[in-house]
Simulated scan of single mutants.
Amino acid sequence: MKARTCLVTGAGQGIGKAIAGRLSAAGHRVALTARDADRLDRTASGLPGPALALPGDVTTDVDAVFDAVEQRWGTVDVVVLNAGTASSAPLTGTTDEQWQRALEVNLTAPFRFLRRAVPGMTSAGWGRVVVIASIAAKRGDPYVTAYTASKHGVLGLVRAAAAELAGTGVTVNAVCPGFVDTAMTESTISNITAKTGRSAQEARRILENRQPIGRLITPGEVADAVELCLLSDAITGQSINVDGGAVQS
C-alpha cells in the first residue's frame, strides 16, 4: 500500500503506541493524539517515519486535531480510534458520572472522529477507519456495565457506518481485543487485588486464564489485526477478535 496519512488516538502508550509504530514502519505518515503530551512526544520521537504529535482530549478536540493534520499533510486516509476508558463497579453502584464518561470517551468520541473523517475520505474515494473496541462489545461480564454498554454501542456504530459507506472506497471495522498486556490491564489487576486480597500474580493469572491460549494478548497482536483491516475494500463492517479464542464469533 502506498504511503498514507494516518491518525491514531490514544497513542501515548500501550495498544495505540504499538499501532503507531506499525503504521510508521510500513512507511506511512502518522499523526498521534493523546492527553499526556510527554508520553505522546516520546512515542512520536521513536517512530521511524514522519510523525506529528498533537496533545488533546478526544472528547473536545476533534476538529483541532483534524485541522492540524490536514494543514500539514492533507486528507486523513486512515483513522485508528484507540482512545478509551474503563471503570469497574456493581450495576447499582455505577454512578451517572461513570456512565457518562464511558459513553463520551468510548462511543461519542469515535462517532465524532468518524463523522469528521468521512467527507475527506469519500471525496478521495479511499479511506480506512478502525475502532479498537473490546470483546466486551460481544458479551456481558459483571461489574463493567458502563464499559460494556459503550463498547456494544461502538460496535453498532461501526456496522452501521460500514453499511452506509460500502462502495465508496471507505471501510469501517472494529478490532476487539481480550485482556492485553497494557497499563489498563495492570489497573484491572490492582482492582482485583484490592477487592479480593489475592496477590498481583494470582490476579494476573485469573485474567490470563480467561483466554484459552493462557496468556495476555500483546499490543503487537492487536496491531496485526489493524493492519489486516487496511488491506481490502471487501473487509468492512467486521469485528475482529484478538482474544486467544475467548469469544468465537
Rank of each mutant, 00 (worst) to 15 (best):
A225F: 05
P142N: 09
A166V: 14
P212F: 08
D233H: 10
A234T: 15
L207A: 05
V222N: 02
L228A: 13
A109Q: 05
N241H: 10
E104L: 12
I132K: 04
N241S: 15
L103Y: 04
R22H: 07
T168H: 04
N173P: 03
Y147L: 07
G178E: 05
N173D: 07
V105M: 05
D36A: 10
V58C: 04
N191C: 01
W73M: 07
I206V: 15
V79Y: 00
Y143L: 15
T108Q: 08
D96W: 12
T33K: 12
T218L: 14
D63S: 09
T94F: 00
A194C: 04
T92K: 12
V80H: 11
V170F: 10
G153N: 03
E186H: 08
A194H: 09
G245A: 06
I206T: 14
T60M: 01
K17V: 00
V129E: 04
A68F: 00
H28W: 09
A3H: 05
R204E: 11
D67W: 02
A194V: 07
V62D: 05
A3R: 13
C176I: 11
A225V: 06
A53V: 01
T145M: 10
E97I: 05
D77G: 10
A146H: 14
G10F: 01
A161G: 08
G220V: 03
R204C: 01
P48G: 04
G14Y: 01
V78P: 00
S134A: 08
A83H: 03
A234G: 07
T5H: 10
R210Y: 12
S239W: 00
I213W: 14
G93Y: 07
V65R: 11
